[in-house]
């Protein structure tokens, strides 16, 4: 799950770099740096939460936590 998130964010980053290439600007690469750092922050928090979930349910299944519904 966290890997997929990483992939999605990086895809967007790649699109930025490509677009920057098209206009021959550095802006695209700057945005990519932003994306990288933010993705790192998100994943850090995400890992912490997943760890706690694992402790509680002994599972890494994404649907293990689905008590809130309706």
């Amino acid at each position: 799950m966290l890997m997929s998130l990483e992939v999605m964010l990086n895809a967007a980053g790649l699109a930025f770099v490509a677009a920057g290439g098209r206009w021959a600007q550095a802006d695209g690469q700057v945005m990519f740096l932003f994306v990288l750092s933010v993705a790192a922050a998100e994943v850090a928090v995400g890992l912490a939460l997943v760890l706690r979930l694992y402790k509680r349910t002994l599972s890494l299944d994404a649907d293990a936590a689905s008590r809130l519904r309706g």
């Binding site: 994404a62 649907d63 008590r67 809130l68 519904r69 309706g70």
Partner: peptide, 10 residues
């Protein structure tokens, strides 16, 4: 509509 609120992340 409530049926869509399954609580499942996927």
């Amino acid at each position: 509509a409530s049926a869509t609120q399954t609580g499942r992340l996927r």
